[in-house]
Simulated scan of single mutants.
Amino acid sequence: MQFLEDQRIEKLREKFLTYSAEFGKCLVDGIVQVSVNPCKDAEFKFNMMLLSIVNFIIVSYFRSSGSLLVSITLYLLLFFNLALKSRWLDPSGKVIFITNVDSGYGQELAKYLINRGAKVIAGASDPMASSLLQLREDGVYLIKFDISSDEKLNESMMRLRLRLSTWSKDLHGVVVNSGVDAFGDFEWSGVKYLKKITEINVWQIAELVKDLLELVRPQKSPCRIAFHSNHLVDLPEPGNLPLTLSKSALRCLVTALQSENRNSNVFFSSIYPGVFCYNNPCILSLENRDALQKNIMNQMSPQTKKILKSIYLEKRIQYCTSRFEGFNSLEPVLDYYFDALFSLEPELEYFPVDFQTRAHIWLRKICPSLSNKILNRNALKLLNYKKKKLQ
């Protein structure tokens, strides 16, 4: 009996050491990610700030050894949560489909995943384009993929199914990278233009997701579907109505999908990045920005243009385009995509944004009135600038 008891204790000890080593590795991975990713660092600092405020209130109010123990426990739970979030599946050999690599986001993500051992199928309007040569050399399999009409979408899905059947592989993840950027106030934007942006950013994607679900439902292995959104859905700043309108609708769609598929083998996530890669030709060049401005001017009626030009129009356009001045690297955003595709516990929403933006998003949730005052102040900056100039 004593021998059996010793064996049981030894097995428990081995399990404890194994789990401790795994936890330690995950914690180290999490700390490394925090140290090299400015957005994850912002998230960690923000959580630490909130926790420190809560602990200060608890300890100062109760002033007991028990409250101190609770405070320490909360900090340990924060690090435990960090370790849990750093557990990933091995990406080697897993198939990821990126719907569009014509833009810089898709191209950078494809290279990022290939470098980590994943097999990448990527959609493009012209798979043989010279701008995609490097992707082909890196091992990305390119297919012609277009979702602008039902007929083109059906043809595109047939190409995707053919490639998967050729490889005899299930689809591990999809990055829905299709969509367009846009900015402008309500008075600038024609209703037809708003409908066009929403059609591209919401309804075309909805059609695509229906076909994707038909593809992955029969699979035995789970599938993750990640969507590209924008942090402006939580901070409706002036001058961004077309994008905010469409991405807010997309958020409702993704949230509903996750709720409806809670017990299935399909997981949904949205990435809400801030601003990255200003003046990168693959993301948004100065020429593209100028084209957007010209498009805005063409949409306005002569009367609206005359009225707004006398008030704030030129400065407002500068304010709108100022959000294109951001980080010089996409690495923080790509890390979150990797997490959504390979984490053992993928989240519904990821916010690769700076500390100030994250704090404002949190403030908007707990105190909308104060957040509105800040947003109103930003909106009035241009008018105040105009008044000072006239004086």
Rank of each mutant, 00 (worst) to 15 (best):
S165I: 05
T166V: 12
D170C: 09
L171T: 05
L171C: 04
H172Y: 03
H172A: 06
H172S: 10
H172C: 03
V174R: 04
V174H: 02
N177Q: 07
G179T: 06
V180I: 15
V180H: 02
A182F: 08
F183P: 00
G184V: 02
G184T: 03
D185N: 14
D185T: 10
E187M: 08
G190Y: 13
V191C: 01
K192A: 14
K192Q: 14
K192H: 11
L194H: 01
K196C: 07
K196S: 15
I197T: 09
E199C: 10
I200P: 00
I200L: 13
N201R: 07
N201H: 04
W203K: 10
I205H: 06
I205W: 09
E207A: 14
L208D: 10
V209P: 11
V209S: 01
K210Y: 08
D211T: 05
L213E: 11
E214D: 14
L215D: 04
L215K: 04
K220V: 10
K220I: 08
S221P: 00
P222W: 00
R224F: 00
R224M: 04
A226W: 15
F227A: 09
H228C: 12
V233H: 12
V233Y: 14
D234E: 15
L235T: 12
E237Q: 14
P238E: 12
G239Q: 08
G239W: 11
N240G: 11
N240C: 11
L241P: 13
P242I: 01
P242D: 01
T244E: 14
L245K: 04
L250H: 03
L250W: 03
C252K: 09
C252M: 09
L253D: 03
T255W: 13
T255L: 12
T255P: 00
A256F: 06
A256G: 03
Q258I: 01
N261S: 09
N263I: 03
N263L: 09
